[in-house]
């Protein structure tokens, strides 16, 4: 057996909550740091698209996307309150302690995409994992060609990271298009599903040498894939990140399996070509 000591992958590191920002209904962003500076430093190796296991001691543990880019200086989670552990997290006040272990998963191979066009398509809170890639790509802006962001939500008040989106819309050098399914008062942007943005006048999505990142609810995912395929995108050039119920994050507990893949270690990032070969419907 292995002579070097085995690290305990189930042992969370202690984290301290710094501040909480309300984003949209039921969604908050939690800024935090590790109690131990060594842990804080060690975590810096994470890549866009990876995730962490968050512990609220006494309540449980859940997997959470890492919305910050490794090029930023702060760690945070953006979490929707859906179950018991996320509800407990939403109750925490600055100064509270909780547990974090990770980073886990494969992440997006951002270096492999150097020299290519990037198209980000997100729906609702699907923007959370893609935020990391977008910030990363903008940080290394010169490494990539055209960068386009297409983001939609049901109603204007469900648009996540709105301040950042507004900033992105005003920044030169890349495009950021927003849409909503239903307009409400005060909204003067486009109305329609996110795929309708591809055909908006003045928008031209390159297909050659392009990677399309897609993340959002299942129905949005299905339609966006159809739109991209119609435009001529090949399956290998469409990437997404999947979510599943997980208990361990390290390829052992078996909950997150889809066909041959353990989403936590073989994913969560898959190309659409890989998704079709998993051997089970997603």
């Amino acid at each position: 057996m292995n002579p070097s000591p085995t690290p305990n992958v189930f042992l969370p590191k202690i984290a301290i909550l710094d501040r909480v920002d309300s984003e949209i209904d039921d969604v908050k962003t939690f800024y935090w740091h590790f109690k131990d500076p060594a842990d804080q430093e060690a975590f810096r190796v994470f890549r866009p698209g990876q995730f962490a296991q968050v512990s609220i001691f006494g309540v449980g543990e859940f997997p959470a996307s890492l919305p910050p880019s490794p090029t930023e200086n702060e760690y945070f989670f953006t979490i929707r309150q859906v179950g018991s552990v996320t509800a407990a997290l939403h109750q925490l006040k600055p100064g509270a302690v909780f547990g974090v272990r990770g980073p886990y998963g494969n992440g997006f191979p951002m270096e492999e995409y150097y020299g290519r066009n990037l198209v980000f398509v997100a729906g609702g809170i699907g923007l959370i994992p893609l935020r990391s890639c977008i910030v990363y790509a903008l940080h290394f802006r010169k490494k990539y060609k055209k960068i386009q962001i297409f983001y939609g939500s049901r109603v204007p008040k469900d648009l996540l990271y709105l301040e950042t989106l507004r900033k992105w819309q005003k920044t030169e050098g890349f495009e950021c298009h927003l849409t909503v399914d239903r307009s409400t008062e005060g909204w003067n942007g486009p109305v329609g599903v996110v795929g309708s943005l591809f055909k908006k006048p003045g928008v031209s999505v390159p297909v050659e040498n392009t990677v399309a990142f897609v993340c959002g609810p299942p129905i949005m995912f299905r339609f966006v894939i159809r739109d991209l395929k119609t435009m001529g995108f090949e399956d290998v050039n469409i990437v997404s990140t999947l979510e599943r119920y997980m208990k361990c994050g390290v390829g052992k507990c078996g909950h997150c399996c889809i066909g041959v893949a353990y989403v936590c270690v073989d994913g969560p990032v898959f190309t659409y070509a890989q998704i079709q070969k998993l051997g089970e419907e997603i």
């Binding site: 189930f10 001691f57 052992k252 507990c253 078996g254 909950h255």
Partner: peptide, 20 residues
């Protein structure tokens, strides 16, 4: 078979066990 679940349980005041 290898699959397991993980859960926290309260065993006393301020005392918690994480079990699988």
């Amino acid at each position: 078979c290898t699959c397991f679940s993980v859960t926290d349980r309260q065993v006393g005041p301020g005392e918690i066990e994480r079990i699988r």
